[in-house]
């Protein structure tokens, strides 16, 4: 079943109620999607939770999927909308609690993987949401420029421009880090 395209697997699931086909898609995309949402939210556990609820939504809405279109793009659009809904809930909660998320840059240990992940988050958080998402989709999720344009509902030129500026800003932030930690990041 692994030789089938994503869209063929969805067709199998929709037409023949072949749950194995859906499981293949789930195993193929779950980690990738969870990490994407984790980078967007700055919290990998939250990313995992949103990825799970995204797949539930995909199941509930599977009958509206157009098998002539890209499953990957459809999945990422649902995931992003799911994250935006979650973000609104979190914003409401943090406003009520009156707390601000803080990242303590001073306590980084350059050899610790968790700290390295946190530093990467700090660098990504210096970007606007659109730039951050574009970078993650391109280099961590390996989507093509065209797929990113479809997912983010913009032109390919806009995607390239966002990538260019995202990388420029990230380079300067990483230089700051490297100066601070004697060449280590």
């Amino acid at each position: 079943m692994n030789h089938l395209t994503d869209e063929e697997l969805m067709t199998q699931f929709l037409d023949r109620n072949n749950t194995k086909a859906f499981e293949v898609l789930y195993h193929k995309y779950f980690v990738m999607l969870a990490k994407y949402l984790g980078w967007l939210s700055g919290n990998m556990e939250l990313g995992k939770d949103i990825a799970q609820s995204t797949f539930l939504k995909v199941l509930h809405k599977s009958y509206v999927f157009n098998t002539k279109k890209s499953f990957k793009v459809w999945l990422y659009v649902i995931a992003k909308n799911n994250w935006l809904n979650e973000q609104r809930k979190l914003d409401r909660y943090t406003n009520e609690e009156n707390t601000e998320p803080s990242i303590e840059e001073d306590v980084f240990d350059t050899n610790n993987e968790a700290d390295q992940l946190q530093r990467m988050n700090v660098v990504l958080n210096t970007l606007s949401e659109l730039h951050r998402e574009t970078f993650v989709l391109k280099y961590l999720d390996n989507l093509s420029i065209q797929e990113i344009a479809e997912t983010m509902d913009c032109s390919e030129g806009t995607v390239k421009s966002r990538l260019f500026y995202a990388m420029k800003n990230m380079r300067s932030k990483m230089k700051e880090f490297k100066t601070e930690y004697n060449g280590k990041f």
Binding site: K35, G38, W39, K48, E113, Q116, L117, M120, Y139, L140
Partner: peptide, 14 residues
């Protein structure tokens, strides 16, 4: 560097 950190994140599939 980002790819390495991303690949290093282990995540169990529920």
């Amino acid at each position: 560097e980002f790819k390495n950190v991303n690949d290093g994140i282990s995540m169990a599939i529920p």
